[in-house]
């Protein structure tokens, strides 16, 4: 399935064929108009919480325009239509987030891989990285693996939980 959400330096954006909805989490005051009016699209309990296929473009625009902050805003994907949008479209980016007009919305700088040394346990790696061992290379996408740090695992280089039995401290 094609993803319709992605991250960029100004927050998150969600697309359907007609429009892009922008979400700026830091601006949200939880006025909750979005999910009270259109739970099919805006469902805080779901990830991603915005489903652009949940309703019509017209209805999504209507509900985004209800947001009292700049947390939710929108634009037409056809850029030529954005300049002529009228001020009745309260939450069009032109009025809410003018910095997004004509910006090229750089992708967020890629997330660093998280490397955690667990107390008396393994190394837990999380993110997008290349893992090389025993002469093989694997691309790991958005997932987590644990590498043995005590030296007694039966599944080297991966942790199999034996550090506890082994009484590993370090």
């Amino acid at each position: 399935m094609e993803r319709n959400d992605s991250q960029f330096s100004g927050g998150r954006r969600y697309k359907n064929d007609d429009i892009t909805v922008y979400w700026k989490p830091s601006a949200c005051v939880h006025a909750s108009y979005c999910y009270r009016e259109l739970l099919e699209v805006f469902d805080p309990s779901r990830r991603p919480w915005v489903d652009m296929n949940g309703s019509t473009t017209e209805k999504i625009i209507e509900v985004v325009n209800l947001c009292p902050t700049e947390a939710l805003s929108w634009k037409w994907n056809d850029e030529s239509k954005n300049d002529s949008v009228g001020s009745d479209q309260l939450n069009h980016i032109k009025f809410r987030r003018p910095e997004l007009m004509n910006s090229n919305e750089q992708e967020t700088k890629e997330q660093p891989v998280s490397v955690k040394i667990m107390a008396d346990g393994p190394i837990v790696l999380k993110g997008n990285f290349t893992l090389s061992y025993n002469g093989t290379k694997k691309e790991i996408h958005d997932s987590m693996i644990s590498i043995c740090r005590c030296g007694v695992s039966d599944h080297m280089p991966f942790c199999d939980g034996q550090h506890r039995k082994a009484g590993f401290v370090g």
């Binding site: 993803r3 992605s6 991250q7 992708e107 890629e110 997330q111 660093p112 891989v113 790696l125 993110g127 997008n128 990285f129 290349t130 893992l131 090389s132 061992y133 025993n134 691309e139 996408h141 958005d142 590498i147 280089p157």
Partner: peptide
């Protein structure tokens, strides 16, 4: 999407 999944680090055993 490839941008988001780009390998960020080399982990070598």
């Amino acid at each position: 999407d490839s941008k988001e999944n780009k390998s960020q680090a080399i982990i070598e055993v």
